[in-house]
Design a protein around this nucleic acid. Structure first.
Lengths: 244, 244
DNA sequence: TAGATTTGCTTAGAGTCATTAAGGAAACAT
DNA sequence: ATGTTTCCTTAATGACTCTAAGCAAATCTA
């Protein structure tokens, strides 16, 4: 009766895997990153320690799986926000994506902080679920920017204005990932990305608490500065009040 | 024979404290953040575990002390770079400070990464050595900006252009810290700070590896963009080749 | 359907960590 | 010389990761 290749066992296993990740997430949210231990997760669901090793090779793999979940959830939220505007409305779609990213980040501080600070751990294999989900996340922006570029190219620096080293690095990047954008356009995109994502990361990692208690308007100002660099009209696309 | 108030015992104790922090740093550099445990540090210097509790109240305090060391070292390096130019040469002094910050960060990746990612841990008391050293670090920039502002005010947005929420937050910040700058000037300064420090943090936390292998030129470009916002002439102050 | 195999869990155990407690020996003070 | 402080040790508790050995039920095979 089971669908081709999906036995009852498989289903139960998937359910248990999901429950494990949910328990890990609950611990992260309620007691912080340090509380997400193999033992605590197992205890949380009435299993005893070593049982989890039938589902994850070790602590690190569990962490990676949960992180991948977060990436996927964030990606989905951003895509949904983007798709609430028609395909051609690049300004609104991009701004909505950016705002959805911060909204998710601050309503899921623990999760976002974990995603960002986890690279501190060991080296990462490029085919792990975590890396795959991370690339899908990047892809959301990259796709939208690519569409924007093909529909209405934004201003880019002249080729000779771009530092040769940067040019070479971006050439390698576009070649490796198959991005169909000229390096100058990628450079503009990444400049914006660094500003926006960097700001968000500093906020979530509490690096700006010394001066700010609410970075919502600062983020909004960042968007306002970035928009014209991508040839977008921020004011015309004002989607919501610039509050937190 | 001992100097007033500094007994032999005191000297020995200070030496041991220094040795402990040095051992902790060595472990951090050679084996990563996770290797900096009370036991490992003690083992490293031929002592056995609990002995360290005579010097630090616990693991967290040790970490805080080492972090404070890093802040102090970074601060000193930045001040030295700054002071290699005469007091009036604001452009060169500020750029030298910024460059010294990145140079230290990438030649001491483990240390800088630890400083940045450590806020993830527990809450911090405002009078810990770590916090004090952190404030001294901020102070380097704040002082230079203040001198720059008094000597040659840079362009600031009109009061009504500044978001009311941001204005209020910055008013509270300047009031609490005694910064002698108008909020508009603080806003410009912090905008620049966020861009520069955010970029550095993303670099050290490997958030940009997917596209860049050498962020030296990107950092330099960031400086070039920031300089005019502070009324400084980047090209006139070109201190060194914009390489990594 | 009987037997073999796989799967999901258990407990036991080794080795690590942080931290507290108790005690000995040396340094110091009076 | 005696008492006190300081530095360090070992012992012990309870947490953690992870491996090993083994039991029982589900699943597959013939």
């Amino acid at each position: 009766m089971a669908t081709q290749g999906v036995s009852r066992r498989d289903r139960v296993r998937q359910a248990t895997l999901a429950e494990i990740r949910a328990a890990a997430r609950r611990l992260l949210i309620e007691q912080g990153p340090a509380a997400v231990t193999i033992n605590a997760v197992a205890r949380e669901m009435g299993m005893s320690g070593p049982a989890l090793y039938h589902y994850f090779a070790g602590h690190e793999e569990l962490v990676g799986a949960v992180t991948a979940d977060f990436f996927r959830e964030l990606t989905a939220v951003m895509e949904a926000a983007r798709d609430s505007y028609p395909a051609g409305d690049h300004a609104r779609r991009l701004l909505a994506t950016c705002r959805a990213m911060r909204t998710w980040a601050i309503t899921h501080r623990a999760e976002f902080g974990w995603v960002f600070a986890s690279p501190i751990t060991s080296e990462r294999r490029p085919d792990s679920p975590r890396e795959l989900a991370g690339r899908d996340f990047e892809q959301v922006f990259l796709e939208e920017i690519t569409e924007l570029w093909t529909a209405r190219p934004f201003p880019v620096p002249a080729p000779e204005e771009l530092d040769p080293s940067i040019r070479e690095q971006l050439r390698a990047y576009t070649a490796a990932t198959g991005v169909g954008l000229p390096v100058e356009a990628v450079h503009v995109f990444l400049s914006c990305w660094i500003r926006l994502y960097g700001l968000l990361c500093m906020e979530v990692l509490n690096q700006l608490d010394f001066a700010y208690s609410d970075l919502g308007p600062v983020y909004e100002e960042c968007l306002r500065e970035i928009a014209p660099r991508l040839g977008l009209d921020y004011d015309a696309a004002a989607g919501r009040a610039p509050a937190s």
